[in-house]
């Protein structure tokens, strides 16, 4: 599976450093970044914002049947992480097995290689999370 280069490039800020957005009117933070606040609509103004990378495991699953490109990594943990600023996102939990993970466990964002377009294609990087012990 090869992702369109323009799509990869466009998403680099959010993938590399969790660049999001927030509504200046209701202060809600969004990840991935939104261009319009669904509550304040035209009354709200959107500006870019960052996240601390700290959060908690909201839910998780151990993947044993991986999509193309991730076969070597099984079994790996895929989780919904709730960032301390509010938004939830889906990401891999690095350096661990399913038995190490619990709902509510604190995590921190790390920068990892996500996938490579074999054999001569692009390398894709982005966020994963790591359990904070």
């Amino acid at each position: 599976m090869t992702e369109n280069i323009a799509i990869t490039w466009r998403r680099i800020p959010e993938r590399y450093r969790l660049a999001g957005s927030q509504c200046t009117s209701c202060k809600t933070k969004f990840f991935p970044p939104r261009k319009l606040c669904p509550d304040c609509r035209r009354k709200g103004k959107i500006e870019s914002c960052g996240f601390s990378g700290k959060g908690k495991i909201y839910s998780f699953s151990e993947v044993h049947s991986a999509p193309a490109g991730l076969e070597l990594e099984i079994p790996y943990v895929l989780a919904i992480v709730q960032l301390e600023e509010g938004p939830k996102l889906t990401a891999q939990v690095a350096d661990c097995h399913g038995c190490d993970v619990q709902v509510g466990a604190p995590v921190e964002a790390v920068f990892r290689k996500i996938r490579s377009d074999d054999p001569e294609g692009l390398l894709h990087y982005g966020y994963k999370f790591r359990l904070v012990k």
Binding site: A94, V110, R112, I114, L123, Y125
Partner: peptide
């Protein structure tokens, strides 16, 4: 290194630690 690590990912984590020691925005 793990399967998802390379010289770039290692460098980023070290760089982020250096920035927190310096309390400097990237």
């Amino acid at each position: 290194p793990g399967l998802d690590e390379d010289a770039a990912s290692l460098a980023v984590e070290a760089a982020r630690n250096a920035l927190s020691v310096a309390r400097l925005d990237g």
